Simulated scan of single mutants.
Amino acid sequence: MRKRRSALTSVVMIPVACLVGLPLYYILVNTFKTQQEMTTSPLSLPHTLFVDNYTNVFHTVPLLQSFSNTLFVTAASILVMLFIGSTAAFGMIMRATKFNTWFGVALMLGFIIPGQSTLIPLYRMLVQLNLIDTLSGLVVLYSAGSIFCYFLILGYMRTLPFEIIEAARIDGASVGQIYWRIVLPLIRPILVTVGVFQTMWIWNDFITPNVFLSSPEKRTLVLQVYTAVGEFTTDWPAFMTLSVIVLIPMVIFFIFAQRHIVSGLLAGGVKG
């Protein structure tokens, strides 16, 4: 019975995996073709290994600067979100008052509002703060993702053994010491999980940088891909080459971090 189920699963999943992988195959193989070869045979393997697309992209596109911009915005935003989300959840757990309950409901309402509907008021706010066309302004905008972090961390914190916290209180530990020395190490799995989710979101985000950045030297990697599309003609092999280069860091990151996505969400208690 188990062998039959395994065979049936393989029969179903292999075609699905091929279907899902087809766009990636299409992009990857065409990075080694000329424009003419791609037009005549877009799905076939390249006749020769044409690497000029990669050479031209590295010479014409400021990838290093864009990579630095993206890395700074992503790292700074993740640190801010994890700090705000974890401290907010810690405060809610330590002081379960009616005000905190209603405040949590307000955060939930803010979380379900589509981000696109707030672009105009956010733009006007950043203009007043002189943060338009700055990487720091992007970090401020992405810090709104702290609400998502807060809800996941709050659910995880509710599974912690609060006897440890009570014992620390009796020993005279302050609130800051309890958070830093006890709670923070215990919630490390969910912090890693949330960090993975938010990293993939910020790294691949297009709308926010496109609206709030205008200077070429401050573009993120995703914006560089967008600017590669011409108004009248587009070098599609070069465009796909740039897309592959932009995807490589995130693919590597996902391979090393994927085990934390499920393990952090499923971990419901403290062992050992």
Rank of each mutant, 00 (worst) to 15 (best):
F83S: 12
A168K: 00
M250N: 11
L24H: 05
S263V: 09
E217Y: 10
L265T: 01
A173K: 09
G269T: 12
R219G: 13
P185H: 11
L43K: 03
T234Y: 10
R188M: 13
R219E: 12
G155A: 13
L8G: 12
Q198L: 03
Q177R: 14
I170V: 15
F197E: 03
V194S: 09
N130D: 07
Q116L: 02
A257E: 10
V61L: 08
L131D: 02
A76C: 12
L247W: 01
G272M: 05
A257V: 05
V175R: 11
L152K: 04
Q198G: 00
L71A: 14
L126H: 10
V51F: 07
E217P: 11
M108E: 01
N100F: 06
W180N: 02
G115R: 15
L186F: 10
F254M: 14
V12M: 11
P42K: 04
A267T: 15
M13I: 11
S263H: 08
S146G: 00
Q198E: 04
A7Q: 13
M94W: 09
R4C: 07
I112L: 10
V225H: 01
S215P: 09
G230W: 10
Q65F: 00
R4P: 00
L154V: 09
L152H: 04
I170M: 15
L186T: 14
I113M: 03
L49T: 07
F32Q: 04
Y142N: 08
K271D: 08
L247S: 15
L82I: 08
D235E: 06
L8Q: 14
I165D: 10
A75H: 11
T87S: 07
T199P: 02
I202D: 00
T60N: 08
P189R: 03
